[in-house]
Design a protein around this nucleic acid. Structure first.
Lengths: 191, 191
DNA sequence: AAAGCAACTTAATGTAGATTAAGAAATTTT
DNA sequence: AAAATTTCTTAATCTACATTAAGTTGCTTT
């Protein structure tokens, strides 16, 4: 069974026909590393589900400083939620970090699917709730923890990502500069 | 029409019977200011919708430092999403800041309502999506903006709250100490 | 209205993390 | 495999914000 159907089946159960219908509304694309799948300023037309490979979303400050919002590897969803639901230009980039196979679900097809398979409302509600919870936790961590503590939490929460993601992007995710991250890391190793 | 039904009707349409059914599954409670509606360590059993008054959710660090996650005044929802969906003990407090009338929707009744009025899945999906978008924006702001810029955004985004919320809690929301907030504010006025 | 407490202010001092800069290591491109 | 580009490291200096402390204003309680 395809990974995306497995993912959905964790929270709702679909009949064979529903699975087929769902898949028929998606397309699978392969991307090379460094491809920018969505540019800041564009309207986000799709949700992306990662079959394999690694993507990230980030924005860029006036300054040219990047801030990573989200990493997505195998079995994860990614997109620009703001732009996707408002259909206005967003301020996120989505970039492929490692060659990837991605399932695209367009906004229109998603709405069609909501009508044809109302259970999917439930699935995406649950998905969004989980995403919200994890975001709230990250927000509170940024308000209350030191950079070291945030890094430790990151390692525990995403052990597979540490191997894969360039260090400067982990730095950006936890909210410090690459220079500070580097010195902090070697300080932590010395203990 | 009740405020909560208006709120729901912004995104889905309910029949008369559905409205009645929905309301029959809720209860309305009045709280005095300073009431703690939910304590850290408890399992959150309800979603709260504010008819009038003002509530906030926050957590407390080892240190006794509070961090405000969310304010909710008239027409807003509040709860501990993590605890609500996992039904595990949460780490948020929910406190009444101004005498309030609140609609409570229990987790069980919410699940019953999902079965009886499947459209509600859609409503709460959309609600959660909006919440996620606003949270993501706040997270990115915390990563990329200065305290002054965050405060200015707060003022623009929640103009009614500035009048109502004690200053030290705005400080906590934007992620600075009350002392720094105070000096920052008077510096901003001098310009 | 007095007493008590919490919220706000101001100022001095301290520090986590930013910035700048320059070299070393690793990866990509040719 | 050389050249080019990007990532990582180290170290010095700087700054936004925290901490501490003490005083003031404004609520709340009695």
């Amino acid at each position: 069974m395809s990974l995306i159907i497995q993912n959905i089946s964790k929270h709702i159960s679909l009949t064979q026909e529903e699975e087929c219908l769902f898949l028929s509304k998606t397309q699978i694309l392969n991307y090379k590393a460094k491809t920018i799948v969505l540019h800041s300023g564009e309207i986000c037309k799709h949700s992306y589900f990662v079959n394999h490979g690694l993507l990230r979303s980030f924005n860029i400050n006036d300054n040219i400083v990047e801030h990573v919002l989200h990493f997505a590897c195998e079995g994860w969803w990614i997109g620009d939620m703001y732009s996707l639901i408002s259909q206005k230009p967003g301020n996120l980039f989505i970039e492929v970090l490692e060659d990837a196979e991605v399932v695209l679900l367009s906004k229109e097809n998603q709405e069609i699917l909501y009508q044809e398979i109302p259970k999917l409302e439930r699935f995406f509600r649950i998905l969004t709730e989980k995403s919200l919870v994890s975001n709230q936790e990250r927000l509170m961590d940024n308000l209350s923890l030191s950079a070291e503590e945030r890094f430790e939490k990151f390692c525990k929460k995403y052990p597979t990502l540490i191997q894969k993601v360039p260090q400067k992007q982990i730095a950006s995710y936890i909210g410090v500069t690459p220079e500070f991250f580097s010195t902090m890391k070697s300080k932590m190793l010395r203990k």
